[in-house]
Design a protein around this nucleic acid. Structure first.
Lengths: 340, 340
DNA sequence: CTGAAAGCGCTTACAG
DNA sequence: CTGAAAGCGCTTACAG
């Protein structure tokens, strides 16, 4: 480590006490304007920066937030779900805006979480980001809550879920996009994606879909094929789907990545999208607009989401009790659903 | 902040001194096996975690690395260059592997950098990631060097550049992909992307291209149109290009994003890719494989790159003098270059 | 408005 | 192998 000036050095140069230096640099009203300016000038000149370790230790907070990113179990190591990367960008910016630093960490579902940023006082709170098997991590969330760790998670807003959630309205998204398909004459819809409490987000989308179908007079629930959030899983699911049914004319996919895989499978079988089968996704990742045909999907407002995650967490840290937030779903109509 | 157990609490419970607790928890060989186990058991039981602020303050290092991500000047706020996001993923993982935490921060080119992570002792070193106008930030790099900040930057390896660089072999990449086009009969090539010392990476790719052309017997240098690293800029550049020339049969783009924009412009003009004009990109972002036609490009090994950035920086921190690294370029042949 | 002093929670040289 | 003590560089209650 390099030799750094300390507040004592500045105090010495300015001919004041070290306490006064500290006050001057923090713009305390307790310090004389003239003194403040002299101290600040010397600090600038020496390129002095307050030692954050000492400062955090003394103040008992770090003005740092930790982001735990849970990886999708994709085979390809370097391929991270683009949706989360977009969230990461917006979280980073929101933190900067609020004057917080951001620690980022990738976590594996399988192993024990490295969630002790707050326990070690490196961070004042934690943001959890990533879908996964909810049933598996439920216990860990409860444990965090017991430890009184400050945390917010991205995901389904549900009273039974431990901790504070910020999420998009998945039910509404599934509902809207299904309604759109129905209104354009599609009659035999299938859903690709897990649809149970292991993946609450996908499940809500599915429930929204079912609700739209019921409203339209379809009493039986749609064909549903499990898939995790990868392109490959979407491909496989369509292969299975085509074996089970031959009159499907629209597929609602639980994510864009799944939809991209689904369209690849359909192309391989020479099935025209949207001519024969309409396909819609969810997330509105960058890829969706470049897919062929461009993918109709539901946009999740990642900018707003990131801001809300950060500001909610900061409120929590400050002892307030922010409410969970549901961000409205926004339809993005492109060509894969067969629209004009 | 919650009430946390300290090493004194554990000392009290274990009936030893606080120094012994500290030693036991750090697995010091100076402590008796039995004592160590007793102390560690109590620590586990209390869910005790060492306070990193205190520990870092005392040890004068934080085992934390800061990543400064420089944004491309894209109009869309939420759209971050996918290539950098991939790097971010690999850097995060590499840090975890080396036992370092990672602070992430987005920076704007225009404003002053918030590069004082090391000055404040929040980080032991810094990784700089992001292309931009090299001439603009050169001075800032020199300043970092003067301050003896430990930093590595992603980018062109060049003896005249301040600081340690890790980068892909851009010259070789430009050379290889041009050679490929020539060997498949393309004769009139253009380059899209900045080609001067303001953007050394693009420039090297361009130089590699020129070298391949010369080797093939073309003496005049290719038509070159400026573009920054956005889809839109690629689109505009092609519009300009088509006004200037009508016998181009291949376009070498400085990045995939530029290439995607270029292909959109060509499609709008009803020019067939690769039938009329071949298009190639650079980076091999996820989008490239889903483009229509799929984009031939140069892969930058982000996994290796992230690891090298992290390990080089750690060496620097430890007082070693690691060498700059050039990662070989890998051609990825798809359909946009007109291959079988 | 200013200063002397305590203390945040560790690590480690020193003495035994 | 263990303990008492110093000290990392701040912030802030206390006294003036």
């Amino acid at each position: 480590m390099r030799d750094k000036a300390t507040s004592f050095d500045i105090a010495h140069m300015a001919g004041v006490s070290q306490s006064t230096v500290s006050r001057a640099l923090r713009n305390s009203p307790l310090v004389n304007q003239e003194t403040r300016e002299k101290v600040q000038a010397i600090a600038r000149q020496l390129n002095y920066k307050v030692d954050k370790n000492a400062s955090s230790l003394r103040q008992r907070n770090s003005r740092t937030i930790a982001l735990l990113l849970f990886e999708d179990p994709t085979s390809d190591d370097s391929m991270i779900n683009p949706f989360f990367l977009s969230m990461l960008g917006s979280i980073t910016k929101a933190c900067a805006q609020e004057g917080y630093d951001l620690l980022v960490s990738f976590q594996h579902y399988s192993t024990d979480w490295h969630a002790d940023y707050e326990d070690t006082n490196k961070a004042d709170g934690i943001i959890l980001l990533g879908y996964g098997d909810y049933m598996n991590y439920q216990d860990k969330l409860s444990k965090l809550e017991q430890q009184k760790t400050h945390f917010v998670r991205w995901g389904e807003v549900d009273k039974d879920h431990p901790g504070l959630s910020v999420g998009c309205d998945n039910f509404q998204g599934g509902y809207k996009i299904t309604q759109h398909l129905i209104s354009h004459g599609r009659k035999h819809l299938a859903f690709i994606g897990g649809a149970d409490s292991h993946c609450p987000e996908f499940y809500e989308r599915f429930k929204g879909m079912c609700h739209a179908l019921q409203q339209a007079g379809c009493q039986d629930s749609p064909l549903q094929i499990d898939a995790i959030n990868t392109e490959d899983s979407g491909y496989q699911a369509v292969v299975t789907l085509l074996q089970k049914s031959d009159d499907i004319d629209a597929i609602v996919c639980a994510s864009d990545l799944i939809a991209i895989g689904a369209m690849r499978a359909l192309k391989d079988k020479d099935i025209d999208v949207p001519g024969d089968i309409a396909v819609v996704g969810y997330d509105n990742i960058l890829l969706a607009s470049f897919a062929n045909p461009p993918l109709t999907t539901v946009h999740q407002n990642t900018k707003k989401a990131g801001e809300l995650l950060v500001t909610s967490l900061i409120k929590l840290i400050q002892g307030e009790t922010p409410k969970p937030v549901l961000i409205p779903a926004e339809l993005v109509i492109r060509k894969s659903c067969g629209n004009p």
